[in-house]
């Protein structure tokens, strides 16, 4: 499997003078799921819009499946399905016609059986005759997804697909994403629900102020930056960390009965829990309870984005 999308030194300055992207380079592999994370206004939608042809780039080059998105736009765009962040649908048109329009726009003859299958998967088949304005917000989002899938794209962009969507649809959506991945479709999604990215993405890209801060395999990132914490609850309060425990990375908890031990779980490194616990009892402290927790992608992300821009 090769590179599906290649973004080389792309910059975007809007007419207002605002620099939305600043020398962004990114390679997206065929068949992977990449989650783009970043705070509001980071440039996620701008990047997607440039790849899809909705926004002009100011500098750089983008190819999709080896086709330049500017010079060979037909071949590039044929491969792409886009679910935009904002719901935009012709309100008076019927669901079925809207989806048919999309397929036609991508140069394909109508194929009712295929579209029926897409609508059924999205639980929209019953609504095919409804006008768009009769649908609820979540259903409209499904229609957007159906439109994006109407031409069986090789690359799917989901710009915040789960914003304002209930649990049920969210589950459906991830089910569909997994199914598409199994078919070899490359998927790029943005989300503010970081647990989602953690659960589904092969790789995570973090973007802030128009710059890519990192792109890394989700698992590796979790391992590299994921810290574990052990909260040790004591029978009696302590006002300071006993001297005998000074060599451990311990901190006092918000409650004087608690000590917090931070450590990294990494292959080839011992967390030192056994030694710590025996030293605690040797220091005369009595344990009441012990809990551990792992920092989530969200914590990692917040740390990254908080760092002041140089």
């Amino acid at each position: 499997m090769g590179t599906m999308i290649s973004v080389e030194s792309v910059a975007k300055t809007y007419d207002s003078g605002l620099v939305a992207l600043n020398d962004v380079s990114l390679q997206i592999e065929e068949g992977e799921i990449l989650a783009l994370l970043g705070p509001n206004g980071a440039g996620k939608t701008t990047l997607i819009s440039i790849i899809c042809g909705i926004t002009n780039l100011s500098a750089g080059r983008v190819t999709v499946g080896g086709h330049d998105v500017v010079h060979d736009y037909r071949a590039a765009r044929r491969m792409i399905g886009l679910v935009p962040q904002e719901i935009a649908l012709e309100p008076f048109e019927r669901v079925w016609n809207t989806v048919r329009l999309s397929r036609g726009l991508f140069g394909l003859p109508s194929d009712d059986a295929y579209l029926q299958d897409v609508l059924q998967k999205l639980s929209l088949w019953d609504k095919r005759g409804a006008q768009v304005l009769e649908l609820s917000g979540g259903m409209k989002r499904r229609v957007l997804i159906a439109k994006a899938l109407s031409h069986a794209p090789r690359v799917l962009f989901l710009d915040e697909p789960t914003a304002g969507v209930d649990v049920e649809l969210r589950k459906d959506m991830w089910e569909i994403v997994r199914e598409l991945k199994a078919q070899g479709v490359t998927i790029i999604l943005t989300t503010h629900y970081i647990e989602e990215a953690e659960a589904i993405a092969d790789r995570v890209g973090v973007i802030n102020r128009g710059e890519i801060l990192l792109v890394e395999e989700t698992q590796a990132l979790m391992r590299r930056m994921g810290q574990k914490e052990m909260v040790i609850e004591l029978q009696a309060p302590v006002d300071a960390i006993p001297e005998a425990l000074g060599k451990y990375n311990l901190a006092l908890g918000d409650d004087p009965c608690r000590l917090v031990y931070s450590y990294v779980t990494q292959a080839g490194r011992r967390p030192g829990i056994t030694a710590l616990l025996s030293d605690i009892s040797a220091a005369g402290l009595v344990l009441r309870d012990v809990q551990t927790r792992q920092s989530s992608l969200e914590d990692i992300f917040v740390d990254l984005v908080r760092e002041p821009a140089a």
């Binding site: 909705i54 037909r74 765009r77 935009a88 012709e90 726009l105 439109k147």
Partner: peptide, 17 residues
């Protein structure tokens, strides 16, 4: 109208001249 309601995104991202 497509410009106003935003559906123009689809025209712009479709392989049409």
């Amino acid at each position: 109208f497509p410009k106003f309601i935003g559906t123009i995104y689809e025209l712009l991202s479709a392989p049409v001249s």
